[in-house]
Computed example of a mutant assay.
Amino acid sequence: MAEYTPTPEAVLRTLDVNEHLADPSIKQAFVTPMFDIIAPRYDRFTRWFSFGMDATWKREAMDAVREAARRIRPVQRALDLATGTGDLAFALARLWPGVQVDALDASPRMIDQARQRLAVRDADVATAVTAMVGDMMALPQGDASVDVITASYAVRNVPDARGAVREMARVLRPGGVLVTLDFYKPAFAPWRALFLGYLQVAGDMVGYAWHRDPVVYGYIARSIAHFMTEAEFSELLNDEGFDVVSVQCYLFGGVGRHVARRR
């Protein structure tokens, strides 16, 4: 008799989001099946939920990567963390001739989506990108082996933000570039309450409509509430061996882009 393997949907229904967000030792057990569930609709949801702003944020992030990496000659290896369906990874592959890009995500279904895109829509960069399932807390790349790292909506979802940043510092070469894009907890309390309130209500509604499980997208607001401000993330980067080159805030601190260089 074949062994029963529960679906991500079945797994998620047995877990309490607040308990898992509060305990780093079990956080990933919630995050991975959640992203497995949303993988097929991830791109559509992200564009809709951000009113199309996500595409602009990512385009500007890639402009920041290009500018910050001018001092690196040549850029030979790049790493895109929490790659999702591969947006930034494929953009990295188009920036520099001959670059090799590792596209890493903890969700197997997300990596399946990225590989499908490589086979069809983004076939022009298929030889330059390696899509892989992996753990940001224990990166498979060697010490000082990567020139550029991008990470969109990544650090907020790991069990230990400091440990993840430390891993990025380990695999980046001295002088290497890190560009992150993420949701942050707004510092201004009235706006924080309004921002998180909207994200939770809208996320719960979409989660129920699409998956009959509000927390699938309502997780976003809950995870931000357990995260940090963009200024606190700048301090973390500095503590872990990075010089912060620039910070760009969107939505009054609800979203931020950091450009940093490995000391």
Rank of each mutant, 00 (worst) to 15 (best):
Tyr4Ala: 06
Tyr4Gly: 04
Pro8Thr: 06
Pro8Asp: 06
Thr14Pro: 03
Asp16Trp: 02
His20Tyr: 09
His20Pro: 08
Leu21Val: 10
Ala22Gln: 08
Pro24Trp: 02
Pro24Asp: 14
Val31Ser: 10
Thr32Trp: 15
Asp36Phe: 05
Asp36Gly: 11
Ile37Asp: 07
Pro40Thr: 13
Arg41Trp: 11
Arg44Glu: 15
Arg44Lys: 11
Phe45Thr: 05
Phe45His: 11
Arg47Thr: 06
Phe49Gly: 02
Phe51Leu: 13
Gly52Ile: 01
Glu60Leu: 14
Met62Gly: 11
Ala68Cys: 09
Arg70Ile: 15
Arg70Gln: 12
Arg71Glu: 11
Arg73Asp: 15
Pro74Asn: 09
Leu79Tyr: 00
Gly84Ser: 05
Gly86His: 01
Gly86Leu: 01
Asp87Lys: 07
Phe90Asp: 01
Phe90Pro: 01
Val99Gly: 12
Gln100Lys: 10
Val101Trp: 03
Asp102Gln: 12
Asp105Val: 02
Arg109Gly: 13
Met110Thr: 08
Ala114Tyr: 01
Leu118Lys: 02
Ala119Pro: 06
Asp122Ala: 06
Ala126Leu: 07
Ala126Cys: 12
Ala131Trp: 00
Met136Cys: 09
Met136Trp: 15
Leu139Asn: 05
Leu139Cys: 14
Pro140Met: 10
Asp143Glu: 04
Ala144Lys: 14
Ser145Met: 04
Ser145Arg: 06
Ala151Phe: 02
Tyr153Asp: 10
Arg156Met: 08
Asn157Trp: 04
Gly163Gln: 14
Ala164Ser: 15
Val165Ala: 06
Arg166Cys: 14
Glu167Lys: 06
Ala169Ile: 05
Ala169Met: 02
Thr180Pro: 03
Tyr184Ser: 07
Lys185Ser: 11
Pro186Gly: 07
Ala189Trp: 14
Arg192Gln: 08
Ala193Thr: 15
Leu196Glu: 01
Gly197Ser: 04
Leu199Phe: 06
Gln200Asn: 14
Val201Ser: 09
Val206Gly: 05
Gly207Gln: 06
Trp210Ile: 13
Val215Gly: 07
Tyr217Lys: 05
Arg222Tyr: 05
Arg222Leu: 09
Ile224Trp: 00
Phe227Cys: 04
Leu236Arg: 05
Glu240Val: 15
Glu240Leu: 13
Val247Tyr: 12
Gln248Phe: 13
Cys249Ser: 13
Phe252Pro: 15
Gly256Thr: 06
Arg257Lys: 08
Arg263Pro: 14
